[in-house]
Simulated assay, not measured.
Amino acid sequence: MSVYNLWDKDAKEPVLKTSLSSEWNFKSPVATPRSSSPPSRGGESIFNKYLDLVSSKSNISTEAKQTEPMDRPFDFFDDEEFAFGINLLNNNVACVGHNITKLIQMAQEPWPDNVKLYQPYEVEQILLPDNASCLAVQAFLKMCNLPFEVEMRWNAEFMSPSGRVPFIKCGAFVVSELEPIVQFAANKGVTLCSRLSTEEKAEMRAYMSLITNVLVNAELYISWLDNDTFNAVTKVRNSSVYPWPLGWLQTRSKRNNVAKRLKALHWHDKTLEQVLADVEQCCNSLSQRLGDKDYFFSSSPTELDALVFGHVFTIITTRLPCRKLAETVRRHETLVSLAKRIDERYFKRP
């Protein structure tokens, strides 16, 4: 029986989520265009060398050619081959420029109806930090009224261009994690913060950074460094989709990577009490900013609300051996009410 459950409005105990998907048949994810730099500048530089070479060749006499070989960056057997090389390079530069222009146009096209959001299996595989991130992205897309379909794959993190989940496949584009997806939607003219002032946008980003630096690290700490949670939940769920001993090796490798990340952020040597104190302070800041409003900024949600929902909802509805993290978040009733309000409005769970 899964230890991951979701909130039920009619019962105090969580209700198990039971969605599964078929095996992954998309062998290689499409590389996201935003991760590659335009190669046209390099092509233009080489093409300019060709033009300079043509100009210099016309000014050199036959005697000079016979006595001193011309120093040119590309050596060709005769003039005909030289002209062919220029035409070929010219066509390649034009092709690259055309493809970049086409990608930019595609990025600005309206949101299609066949967008898919990829994430790990909810029932038997997904872990606390990944579940929070996936819920945050789903909430954002629902707030924007952007259609999408959830696809669960055992190797979703390896399909992702950043190695993290979730990610969306939108036409020729593959975009992972909340902030890049928010920017991708903004390029298509869809945004939740257009009404905010410059100061409010900066404040919103500051709070989102606070969540990433505190709640995400706390979730990683509880999942991977707390021995009770690691042995009873993390190790079992993370290795459930791999054959032995691959599951054991992959879990060990991932735990080492998480430990390195937390060491770099000075979280590895913290005690559980220190982690919970940081979470308490983060929740206090968020609660004070939210106050008695429905959302953090006026009467409509932003990506900050989606991010807070993803983490708060996941923490309070996930059963773990270490319940102190959930108990710490539950003490902040305004955040819990926000999570329940977004869940009822946008997810409409029965």
Rank of each mutant, 00 (worst) to 15 (best):
L141V: 05
G171Q: 07
S133R: 15
C170S: 13
K188G: 15
A202F: 02
I211N: 07
T191M: 07
T198Q: 14
G189V: 07
P161E: 02
F158V: 07
N131I: 10
L192F: 04
V123A: 10
F167C: 02
F167S: 04
M152C: 11
K201I: 06
K201H: 07
F173V: 02
I126T: 14
N155A: 10
R164W: 00
Q125W: 03
E122Y: 11
P166A: 05
S160E: 06
T212R: 15
E151S: 12
K169E: 13
S160Q: 10
S133M: 11
I181K: 04
L141K: 05
L192N: 03
P147M: 04
L210V: 05
Q138I: 09
S160N: 08
L128N: 10
S162M: 03
G163M: 02
P129R: 03
A136K: 03
F173M: 08
A185E: 06
V182M: 02
F173Q: 07
C170Q: 08
L192G: 00
F148D: 05
C193A: 14
L196E: 02
F140H: 12
G163R: 04
K188F: 08
V123I: 10
G171P: 06
I126N: 10
S160I: 04
C170G: 02
C134Q: 10
L128P: 12
M204F: 08
M208Q: 15
V137R: 01
G163C: 08
E157S: 14
L141N: 03
R205S: 13
V175M: 01
N131Y: 14
L210C: 09
E179Y: 10
E200S: 13
S176L: 00
A185S: 14
F184Q: 11
S133N: 15
C193I: 12
P180N: 03
P147A: 05
C144W: 01
N145L: 01
F167N: 04
S176A: 15
L178T: 00
V175Y: 01
A132E: 10
L135Q: 13
A156H: 12
I181N: 05
K142L: 15
P180V: 02
E199A: 11
Q183Y: 08
R153M: 05
A139E: 07
L196M: 13
K142R: 15
F148G: 07
P129T: 04
T212C: 08
M159P: 08
L127W: 07
I126P: 09
S133H: 14
S133D: 15
C144F: 00
S162V: 03
G171I: 04
V150L: 14
G171D: 04
S162D: 01
A185N: 00
E149Q: 14
M143D: 08
A139M: 14
F158L: 13
S194K: 10
V137P: 03
